[in-house]
């Protein structure tokens, strides 16, 4: 990934920040240029950092750059504010993941772009320990 492209995504990925439509209140993560209501007027929106697993899978054949993380869990997570995100779920054995598992956002390394490329960081989710 190129430097400007990475830099553009730093705030949303590091802070789990999306946008809220000023007209209809729809929330988006990632952000989008045009709302479903037609508006292009958005304000920043910080997503909830806790939610629960809706569905998940364990990846064992990984795309380039993710090989050394296998097996890893990717889940569709519904946050406490109703927003949904796709994310890895870490710090748990794949077999222990289940629907309804309570998870929280955590800042982690995501991948390395080869030997001399960017180290990509961002959000992953881990189980909430009460």
């Amino acid at each position: 990934m190129s430097v400007p492209r990475y830099w553009r995504n730093e705030v949303p990925r590091y802070r789990l920040q999306g946008e809220e439509c000023s007209q209809c209140g729809a929330k988006y993560f990632p952000t989008r240029p045009v709302c479903k209501c037609g508006s292009t007027d958005f304000k920043p929106y910080k997503l909830a950092e806790r939610g629960e697993v809706v569905t998940w899978t364990t990846i064992s054949s990984a795309p380039t750059g993710f090989e050394k993380y296998v097996p890893y869990v990717v889940a569709l997570i519904e946050l406490e504010d109703g927003c949904k995100v796709l994310s890895q779920v870490v710090d748990i054995a794949p077999d222990a993941v289940e629907a309804g598992l309570k998870v929280e956002a955590v800042f982690r390394k995501v991948k390395e772009d080869g030997k001399e490329g960017i180290l990509q960081y961002g959000y992953k989710f881990r189980p909430v320990v009460e």
Partner: peptide, 17 residues
């Protein structure tokens, strides 16, 4: 930037569904 970024594969998305 937000889907493939998670390391999910085509099979992985189908698997969640």
């Amino acid at each position: 930037e937000y889907t493939a970024y998670t390391g999910v594969t085509k099979a992985g998305i189908a698997a969640m569904i």
